[in-house]
Nucleic acid binder design. Structure first.
Length: 573
RNA sequence: CGGGGUGUGGCGCAGUCUGGCAGCGCACUUGCUUUGGGAGCAAGAUGUCGGAGGUUCAAAUCCUCUCACCCCGACCA
């Protein structure tokens, strides 16, 4: 492609509203433009990157037995009402009415559509397993779009759905997808880690996320992983063993109410009573689908809201506001405790609290706390369930190693859906005995537009992008220093044709620009290999060959250029 | 939805407090000179100052309403 014939509007100046380096680079190098909040246009270079990555995904999905289909992004609301997600997925779903005033949704994921498809056609166990996927646009009306393609409202996703007859077969299918995912991301030039994750609105039994670990500030997720074994989980999901070595009293002491003037926070109370935070138990008031819940957490730990949300099986969970706290505890925020709450407040206790004896809680009275409180004797809990947020320094639940914290960008996910959708939407088959069963389903996503941007968080320098060759829009950038030199132009044309004849993708910067402009644009755009044609080397019948990722260049005779490019490309990431 | 902020030429911004010719840099057009890392000189084109209403002799500037976008939080791939 000739630069003069394509559309690559590079920008000299930084765009102020781009936070992430990867977002900044895509804007500056002329890959994307923004149309509105979370709405992006993909320019010719980005289109090629998307195609490159899509093809990698397609190849690996096909290799793993996937069958490509396309399902409309539009879906009648009835299907979503049937699965029950019309109500649970909430405001994130784009909804609209057609001209007949029928309720429609723009799909953010396609479990309903694909299960509908299969439920009509699938009859026998002989048709299983089945693996259907598509690469297609998704809409999610994100509450706060940001980070460019990382969290847009419209994005492209590869979503696959599998149907199996039984758990043994499903386990093989799931592992097949996991293997395919590692292969895909390796080919795209990044190493990802598979972590356990919460299933969220997707529902189902278990889920994993594929994370690119980043050192930049681009992490949108926090990963907890073990230094010793392979345990890794999204912090939302992460389990841990408490490392604190606490002295637990043998005897239960009598309760004692004390004044704690001005001490509402954990810090203030520990300072006032001169005790360690681990002797305190904080009572956090939440509203779960409108019903009050009190979560009891040891004073030195933080609550994991996802764990709480799952424990109470709520669709919506939010912290109680001060009025609600007053209503249910009878005291201002800061003095809530498990004793004397209004009767309809459900009390959940973290296991770390359950182990404590003679702990300190709020008295449900302004500026008062109660000492020597004991679970069972002084109050009762609805459940004891893990509610604490894992943190660096905790102990691995699998091997006893130390847990550390990393920032990650989610580039893919896999969900074990079980029979949630096959039951509600009727994807059932007859087994060898003629008995009917719902399919065991899985669903698997890869962000097609997000992943290339995530890749950029790893591949850049102060001059611009440095693409891995597998998803670069072109392999080679060809630059004659001066378009006014007939010799240079003649050589450039010759090389341009040579490369194209050999199926090497090349971007030929044929603009009548100064060398500096071309070099800077080339570095910004980030193609893996640059060929420079200038008078100095041309006198010896040679041109310069340089990798974007390396400092040194080599001189290559024009007739050797194809071989030299191929050899260099082989060496590059 | 809550808190904070910004809307001025294609892009980046100043001007707003204290009302008085709508400016700067980059990009763009033309010419000359230059030509191995974002050239120089000269001449030019480009604006409903986000929108509506109001105050005033006079509004980018003050007032009211409104829209869009950004940042922090709740949500999430």
């Amino acid at each position: 492609m000739r630069w003069s014939q394509t559309y690559i509007p590079t920008l000299r100046q930084q765009q102020s509203d781009a936070e992430l380096i990867s977002h900044q680079l895509l804007l500056r190098a002329g890959y994307i433009r923004k149309l509105g909040a979370g709405i992006y246009l993909y320019l010719p270079l980005m289109q090629r990157v998307i195609e490159k990555f899509s093809n990698i995904v397609r190849e690996e999905m096909n290799r793993a037995g996937g069958l490509e289909i396309t399902m409309s992004v539009l879906c009648p609301a009835e299907l979503w009402q049937q699965s029950g997600r019309y109500d649970t997925i909430g405001k994130e779903q784009m909804r609209l009415k057609d001209r007949h005033q029928h309720d429609m949704v723009l799909c953010g994921t396609h479990e309903e559509s694909v299960t509908y498809l299969v439920s009509g056609e699938l009859k026998s166990y002989k048709q299983l397993p089945l693996n259907l996927y598509q690469i297609q646009v998704k809409f999610r009306d994100e509450i706060r779009p940001r980070f460019g393609l990382m969290r847009g409202r419209e994005f492209i996703m590869k979503d696959a759905y599998t149907f199996d007859a039984d758990e043994t077969s499903f386990a093989k299918t799931y592992q097949g997808m996991v293997d395919a995912y590692f292969a895909i991301f390796r080919r795209a030039g990044i190493e990802v880690v598979k972590v356990e994750s919460d299933t969220g609105a997707m529902g189902g039994k278990a889920a994993h996320e594929f994370m690119l670990l980043v050192d930049t500030n681009a992490g949108e997720e926090i990963i907890i992983n073990c230094e010793k074994c392979k345990y890794a989980a999204n912090v939302e999901k992460a389990e841990f063993t408490d490392p604190a070595n606490l002295k637990i009293d043998n005897e239960l002491k009598d309760m004692e109410k004390v004044d704690t003037p001005g001490a509402a926070t954990i810090e203030e109370v520990t300072a006032f009573l001169k005790v360690d935070a681990s002797r305190l138990v904080k009572t956090l008031m939440y509203m779960a689908d409108g019903k009050p819940v009190a979560a009891l957490i040891r004073g030195d730990r933080d609550l994991n809201e996802i764990k709480l949300k799952n424990a109470v099986k709520a669709n919506e969970l939010e912290m109680a506001n001060p009025e609600q706290v007053q209503q249910y505890t009878g005291a201002p925020v800061g003095f809530a405790g498990p004793i004397g709450l209004k009767e309809n407040v459900k009390i959940l206790v973290d296991p770390l609290v359950a182990k404590l004896k003679n702990f300190i809680v709020g008295a449900n009275e302004n500026e008062k706390h109660i000492l020597n409180v004991n679970l069972g004797r002084d109050f009762k809990a609805a459940h004891t369930v893990d509610l604490s947020l894992a943190r660096e320094g905790d102990i691995c639940p699998r091997c006893g190693g130390r847990l550390i914290k990393r920032d990650g960008i989610e580039v893919g996910n896999t969900f074990m859906l079980g029979t949630k959708y096959s039951e509600t939407l009727g994807a059932k088959y007859l087994d060898a005995e003629g008995k009917e069963h719902p399919c065991i389903m899985g669903s698997y996503g890869i962000g097609i537009t997000r992943t290339p941007q995530a890749v950029l968080e790893k591949y850049f320098d102060d001059k611009g992008i440095i693409w891995p060759k597998s998803i670069a829009p072109y392999l080679v950038e060809l630059i004659p220093i001066s378009m006014e030199s007939p010799e240079q132009v003649e050589t450039a044309e010759k090389i341009y044709n040579l490369l194209r004849d050999n199926n090497i993708e090349v971007l030929y910067d044929d603009r009548p620009e100064r060398a500096g402009v071309k070099f800077n644009d080339a570095d910004l755009v980030g193609l893996p290999i640059r060929i420079t044609i200038g008078d100095k080397s041309l006198k010896q019948g040679k041109v310069e060959l340089k990798a974007r990722s390396e400092k040194d260049m080599e001189l290559v005779a024009v007739e050797d250029i194809v071989r030299a490019v191929k050899k260099l490309a082989e060496r590059l990431n």
